[in-house]
Simulated scan of single mutants.
Amino acid sequence: MKYQLEITPKQLEIVKNSLDVYGRLQQGSIDLALDVAIGRRVGDAIVNDRLIHPLQPHSEVDVLKMALFPELARNEHYGVGNKQVPEFGLSYTVYNALRYRQFLDSQNKESLKDTVDSYPPMKYGSEPIPKITKVED
């Protein structure tokens, strides 16, 4: 069974970012997931107007990560092809397919040509790479 989904560019951006957040949470990158979810950097702990050393668990994000992923160090996360969280590979495949589609439709292809967005998506996991086509209005 297959599904066809027609969405606007804004909806595509939301779905892509949602998959990014989902995947980052699955792999233990809570700080990066929050960065994407709220659109600003939250991963560094700031106490008394100074940046805390990155290996010290002093932020609320660190406490949450330690509770959810006690097996991972503060700056550690599961990689894309890990066996512990296979859903991350699937979400990352879909995320990259959406990101690549955005690149293909971009007006700024020349400035993006050497970025990760310009490379076709790779398959992680057992599911195929989604086929995303542009539907003209």
Rank of each mutant, 00 (worst) to 15 (best):
L19E: 07
E127P: 01
Y92E: 13
E6R: 14
D117F: 11
H77C: 01
Q107I: 11
P130V: 08
D20Q: 15
L34I: 08
K10G: 06
R40I: 11
Y92N: 15
A45G: 01
G28Q: 02
L51K: 09
T93E: 02
L12W: 13
L72Q: 04
G79F: 06
S59Q: 02
P9E: 04
P54N: 01
I30H: 00
L55T: 10
G81W: 14
K123I: 04
L90G: 09
L112C: 05
T93K: 07
Q11C: 11
E76M: 07
Q84V: 15
M66V: 02
N48S: 08
P70W: 05
D31W: 08
G125Q: 03
N48Y: 11
L34C: 00
L112D: 03
Q102S: 15
K131C: 08
L98H: 15
V61G: 08
V47F: 06
I7Y: 06
Q11N: 06
D44T: 12
K10L: 09
V80G: 11
I30F: 02
P86R: 00
R74K: 04
V63Y: 00
I14K: 13
L25T: 03
G125C: 08
G43K: 00
I46Y: 04
Q107F: 10
Q26M: 05
V36G: 04
Y78H: 09
S126I: 05
S111W: 12
T93Q: 06
A45H: 06
Y92T: 13
L32E: 07
G89T: 11
P120H: 00
H58K: 01
E110K: 07
I38Y: 03
V47H: 09
G43T: 08
T93P: 08
N108L: 02
G23S: 14
E127Y: 01
D35T: 02
G39E: 05
Y119E: 15
E13M: 13
P54S: 05
S126T: 09
S106L: 00
N17C: 09
N48D: 09
G89E: 11
V21F: 04
E110H: 12
Q84Y: 11
I52Q: 01
V63W: 07
H58C: 06
K16P: 10
A73S: 01
V42Y: 01
L64F: 09
E13Q: 14
L32V: 03
T115Y: 04
Q27N: 09
A37D: 08
S118F: 02
S18W: 12
V15W: 12
D62F: 04
Y22H: 14
N17I: 04
Q56H: 06
A37R: 05
L112Y: 09
A97S: 11
V116I: 10
Y119S: 04
Y119N: 14
V80Y: 14
V63P: 06
D114S: 13
A97N: 03
T115I: 05
L19I: 03
H53C: 03
R74I: 02
F103L: 13
V47G: 08
V47D: 01
V15I: 14
P121R: 03
K109D: 15
L90W: 13
G39V: 03
G79E: 14
I7N: 10
D105G: 14
E60I: 07
G79Y: 02
V36S: 04
P70H: 07
N96W: 15
D20V: 11
Y95N: 14
I30M: 00
Q102M: 05
S91L: 14
D31Q: 04
